[in-house]
Write a protein that binds this DNA or RNA. Structure first.
Lengths: 356, 356
DNA sequence: TTGTACGCGTTATCAC
DNA sequence: GTGATAACGCGTACAA
């Protein structure tokens, strides 16, 4: 049970000396408890030299006694540093972003930074995303990591002018802003080669326009292009009209089957591949004997050997690590130029795509 | 390209009047640009009454012109409010927590709060988790939402004394701290009933001790107990020894098959169920004809009709919403008592468990 | 070795 | 309707 009254509109209760119970103890409280001045507390706790050993002891004891945790806001104000990185993710519920998030946290901690996350609050309108970015800026994060396949770069650059920023997980050649991403074109082409190598001559590819998803557009067009180079007949199906969820999967599959003679379907992501596999199962089409299916992303939990999905793995841990390094290097002055880092992915053979 | 020098150890550069380019504009800059005092800017931007309409206009224009975003730290210091909720999640990469996180963000936004997230930085040691909680406290979050099946409540209560807190996603009866969770016992029992109803008489259940995971312990013991009540012979296999990942799945499956006559296996989670399904497939055991398998959680992307996993769905969206409501109600003084909210889950029939 | 005084950016109070 | 001014909690020159 809390022992304080909620301090909703507290202004009148300007505590004179007896701080109200429940309020966080300040450096002043610790100083009083230890019988020294605030500056000594500050120095003792920060491990600065020039403080008597026994004084440090007394201060430390008083601090833990009171459960003192320095106010990051006040500290940031005077130090002009927040030691905080801001991460914007479009949808934390997606495993892809979840893994990225974890990698960010880990590397940021290793580099001595904390991470605050913001999202577009569910209804992914561009306006929401803009507001989320503003939240990060208000928090005076020292670096910005943006993970969104959709947010146009124009919405990021105004902030990137002030704060070292990096776009993670999607290709971005804007000269203003660094990026770390998996080589979508190389991945799409390699996966297409895999399908062509399996002997498929008529392949359906689900494609997107850049506005709906930069990554999915890039990789799917690379697939189609490479297939054509290999002399494979390509049937493209637009994923832009398929709606936000995966409800359009059946319509897509119907299109694939209706095209006639198609023996392989290349999905833009593992999630779409799984949705397609479901639709195929419902329609009684055997995979891979009657139809081969490939995904993209290669992230758990889709990458279970149970599903055996043939896919392309993006090295999310590496992307996360390099993204943090990119912004922190800029913050620390170790790097001053914008960098674009394309990481190689890796083919995951699987069992959903077989030789014809 | 950034046009400022990185402000690493900036103290000497105490800008006199000409602020260094790239530094975030302050209310002072806006005031100067609009030709008014800071007070007016503050009131104009906060929509307070008592400011001439044309002045508001001028200030607004100057603010957007400069790209002014109020410093949340300074605002919080003066207002004694951060309008921020702190969320601690054990592992954002897990879909379970990812969904929860999204639900938090959404409801927090609806209630006018922002969310900052902290995790144990990957290597989930209790020490890391404590440090993560301290980060949140340093940020002076007004409410705390803790999602971790492992962090002992004793590590939370010292903070909960000061800050309204809620444990989300796991049962917690501590009188100090509110909780919102799915009824693990009810879920485990209902799922066990489902298995018993299917006619299984010898069932293997993977169990945990509370120290390794409170939720998994609770639900699995409920399963075993209910099965015994129904006169079913239960074989328990300890999941505590299975290691951190799912590598122990094959050993578990070996134990299930070695027990003799077991026709159903109840896993503590969907992830474990999928791991078991894989191990069974490798061993050539047909599901569900030779062995029925059930999971628990019922969260995407495991809940694809492709896998057809029989499971128990936890209403994560509801849990997320109610968790935020619980802390915000306490902050706003709408609620003063600690509440424990057990939400009902829902059976997901699936195809991995069949009648004997 | 320790204490004093100031400033960080903002809001709220009180004169004007 | 507007402008000084005093906090808020902390770090840190500078003085003692």
């Amino acid at each position: 049970m809390r022992d304080e009254t909620p301090d909703d509109g507290r202004p009148p209760a300007r505590a004179a000396t007896p701080r109200q119970a429940g309020a966080a103890p300040t450096i002043h409280d610790v100083a009083a408890a230890a019988g020294v001045s605030k500056s000594v507390v500050s120095r003792a706790l920060s491990g600065a030299s020039g403080v008597a050993a026994h004084t440090v002891d007394r201060v430390r004891r008083a601090a833990t006694e009171l459960g003192y945790v320095a106010n990051a806001h006040a500290r940031g104000m005077s130090a002009h540093r927040s030691h905080t990185l801001g991460v914007f993710v479009r949808d934390a519920a997606t495993p892809f972003y979840g893994h990225l998030l974890t990698a960010f946290q880990e590397q940021a901690a290793a580099r001595g930074y904390r991470v605050v996350t913001a999202t577009g609050a569910g209804s992914f309108s561009v306006d929401d995303e803009r507001r989320a970015l503003e939240t990060l800026v208000a928090l005076r994060v020292e670096g910005l990591i943006v993970c969104s396949g959709a947010l146009p770069v124009e919405d990021i650059t105004p902030f990137a002018r002030r704060i070292p920023a990096v776009v993670a997980g999607r290709p971005e050649e804007d000269p203003t802003i660094s990026s770390v991403y998996c080589d979508e074109v190389g991945g799409g082409r390699a996966l297409a080669d895999h399908v062509a190598d399996l002997g498929h001559r008529r392949v359906a590819v689900m494609t997107f326009t850049p506005v709906s998803s930069i990554t999915q557009s890039r990789r799917t067009h690379a697939m189609a292009e490479r297939l054509r180079e290999r002399g494979v007949h390509v049937v493209t199906l637009s994923g832009d009209d398929a709606g936000p969820g995966f409800d359009g999967a059946d319509a897509i599959v119907a299109g694939v089957l209706g095209a006639g003679g198609v023996t392989a379907f290349m999905a833009p992501s593992d999630a779409w591949a799984v949705a397609a596999l479901e639709a195929l199962r419902v329609r009684g089409v055997a995979v891979p004997s009657e139809m081969s299916v490939t995904g993209y992303d290669g992230v758990t939990p889709f990458m279970t050997s149970l599903l055996g999905l043939t896919s392309w793995r993006q090295p999310l841990r590496t992307i996360g690590r390099l993204s943090v390094d990119a912004v922190v290097d800029q913050i620390d002055g170790l790097a001053t130029t914008v960098t674009h880092h394309a990481i190689d992915g890796e083919l995951v053979p699987g069992r959903t795509a077989a030789a014809l």
